[in-house]
Write a protein that binds this DNA or RNA. Structure first.
Length: 271
DNA sequence: TGCCAGGCTGATA
DNA sequence: TATCAGCCTGGC
């Protein structure tokens, strides 16, 4: 069990920021997270955050996954005080972090996310994991399914994943799995590239457009310069920044700012 | 019942 | 280069 002081970290905000589709709240208020082939339970109590894993696993994997070595206060402090909209957004989402998620899993997840809603995205991912992923048992006895590797999907007919409710996105996932499994596309090379290079490379994948590429850059490659523009963000830019969003001010971490905005748009009316 | 959602592809002009 | 229809499906 690992216990840390809750400092600019809010597991509920992270879960609801929409960057991870395999993070769910249990009836007891604790959060279960499945990442690639790993499972962890996380909860908050009395100003502390608890991670149900051994210290070694925490240091080697989860600390990086939750980006706990990064000081997010500096990003929040950089927000223009005169920008009321962004100041409110940061105030509401001050526990958000940009996760370091597994690359292949993010490629597939954001292929599925297009023209889709969160409930259905979660179900699609759960379906393909149960059908094509490896069954695992966590240390506390919880059964879960690892995310299927590209090799498990590459030989399927292009419409096979329609059974898992992917709809027309089925062929996108199968073709990408083929490209990865046969070595035509080497995901690991993306880590050493700049944001622009990685995005360009990702656009070569069938079914990956600008928005999906930006999401993969941000949530898997941790290129925090990436600023995914979806319909929500586009509306915000049109409504609050008609004369242009100050990208120059937030150069180098615009993606973090994008997450504050995205979370704010989904939750500002709930508080 | 019909619209639309966290887009993308491919055809057409 | 820009525009637009079509695509799966389920919640509202």
């Amino acid at each position: 069990m690992k216990k840390i002081i809750k400092d600019n970290f809010d597991i509920e905000q992270i879960a609801e920021s929409g960057q991870c589709f395999r993070m769910s709240k249990r009836d007891d208020g604790k959060y279960e997270i499945i990442a690639a082939d790993r499972y962890i339970c996380v909860w908050e109590e009395g100003g502390y955050v608890y991670f149900d894993c051994l210290d070694k696993e925490f240091e080697e994997y989860w600390k990086h996954y939750f980006d706990l070595d990064t000081d997010y206060q500096k990003y929040m402090d950089a927000v223009d005080e005169k920008d009321e909209y962004l100041s409110d957004a940061v105030r509401l989402g001050n526990g958000i972090r940009i996760l370091n998620q597994e690359l292949w899993e993010m490629i597939v997840s954001f292929l599925i996310s297009q023209q889709n809603n969160i409930t259905r995205i979660r179900r699609c991912i759960s379906n393909i994991s149960e059908k094509y992923g490896e069954e695992k048992i966590a240390s506390d006895g919880t059964k879960y399914y690892a995310f299927p590797k590209a090799e498990a999907l590459c030989c399927l007919p292009e419409d096979a994943l329609m059974e898992c409710n992917l709809g027309y996105r089925s062929k996108y996932v199968v073709r990408c799995a083929k490209a990865v499994a046969n070595g035509c596309f080497l995901p690991d090379e993306l880590y050493d590239m700049s944001y622009e290079e990685a995005k360009e490379k990702l656009l070569e994948l069938y079914g990956v457009g600008k928005k999906v590429a930006d999401c993969i850059c941000l949530f898997a490659l941790h290129k925090i310069d990436a600023f995914p523009i979806d319909t929500h963000i586009r509306q915000v830019l049109e409504e609050h920044y008609s004369e242009g969003f100050p990208f120059e001010r937030y150069k180098g971490f615009a993606g973090v700012i994008q997450q504050y905005i995205f979370y704010y748009e989904l939750h500002k009316n709930k508080v």
